[in-house]
Design a binder for these strands. Sequence first.
DNA 1: AAGCATATATAGGATATCCAATATTGGACA
DNA 2: TGTCCAATATTGGATATCCTATATATGCTT
Lengths: 100, 100
Amino acid sequence: MYIEKFGCDMRGMLSFLILFLLSKKPMYGEEIAAELEKRRGIKPKAGTLYPALKELKKNGLIKGEKKGKIIVYSLTPEGHKTAKYTKEYFCKCFGDVFKD
Amino acid sequence: MYIEKFGCDMRGMLSFLILFLLSKKPMYGEEIAAELEKRRGIKPKAGTLYPALKELKKNGLIKGEKKGKIIVYSLTPEGHKTAKYTKEYFCKCFGDVFKD
DNA sequence: AAGCATATATAGGATATCCAATATTGGACA
DNA sequence: TGTCCAATATTGGATATCCTATATATGCTT
């Protein structure tokens, strides 16, 4: 796989992707993991995903609502605002990558 | 700045950005640094940029041609191929971030 | 030729990022 | 009620990523 040969697996984008996904609709852990797998080809392990969610919660960007066994995560108002700004930042950085 | 509050500075995308920039045109170090600053708001330090270039060169993706004081970097054939694949990967991951 | 600024380079270390392994929780269903 | 499974969670550590500080090289100006 060329990504591996490249030596850059685009680490550091996990939290951004999670925030972006939740900005589209609330999801629970396994849903998020499945969506990430569809995009990146790699499914984040539990020890990767949940600490990331915990950090986002700690920063007040997402909240978790318990629905029986699962926890549905969604953005807080602060999270929406941050998602908006980070998306703008992202577009400024990478906007023209898509125009090829 | 919201990126800081977010706690995600999108690390891990530096090499990808460099590869992408060089896929558009050959550049030397300071040119690359300036372009990165324009996009990210932060200019990479010498101790960040040159090791990254060295790694890309080691992997056979870029080559450096000395022109007096400066070194002009450009993609190798392998680098072009890798840029193409990484761009596709990138689009698969983040393609819909721009549709908002 | 000497001094200076710019460009490139390296070593060492701090932090971020992620995973493996393991633990816990809650519901389903016998 | 007890067992099983899926979902969530935590700890500890490995690696990636980047910066600070420092060093080297090259060309320009005087």
